[in-house]
Nucleic acid binder design. Structure first.
Lengths: 76, 76
DNA sequence: TTAAATGCGGTCTTTTTAGACCGCATTTAT
DNA sequence: ATAAATGCGGTCTAAAAAGACCGCATTTAA
């Protein structure tokens, strides 16, 4: 099970992903085309409903055209 | 299934984790005490045999006393 | 005002991680 | 030489991610 601290973290991470995507003016479907992740899954990630794996993070970074450390830099 | 590119990435990430741990002169068991991840699992991570989730990455960063972006900064 | 695009939630199956534990060969320290 | 510590591989179960697909309400654009 996921602790509530973990849930908060996933949520914050998701918000960070969404903000990057919006800044780049990409739709969920555009990102999904770019990295072969289903658009509904990206939505779930942005909503903090999934605990993504490292390889998914890599795909996401690639599709959003940011470095992995940049993608992970969402601490307040 | 994991692509061979993914496998390489996990391996490089694992090596990065191992190097941080050694630099801090910590044993697998010491890290495992610090973040409640089994030492055998940490070994597997360092060997690139597991596709870790974000929450595991967070625990690991905490135990190794590095920031998440720093933990993820392993690109050549 | 219609049609297209978008965000997002749900479903189902397969694959994998998480989590806990054991054992052992090798290394390190006493 | 002996004992302790360490790295690491394997096992087993339960929980969750991955992956693919559908549908629909709302937003945006033609």
């Amino acid at each position: 099970m996921l602790s509530s601290a973990d849930k908060k973290n996933l949520k914050r991470f998701g918000e960070h992903v969404a903000s990057i995507r919006r800044k780049k003016k990409l739709s969920l479907r555009q990102v999904s085309y770019a990295c072969d992740i289903d658009n509904s899954k990206i939505s779930k990630i942005e909503k903090g409903r999934v605990n993504v794996t490292l390889t998914t993070l890599l795909q996401l970074a690639e599709a959003l055209e940011v470095s992995l450390p940049e993608l992970m830099d969402y601490t307040l």
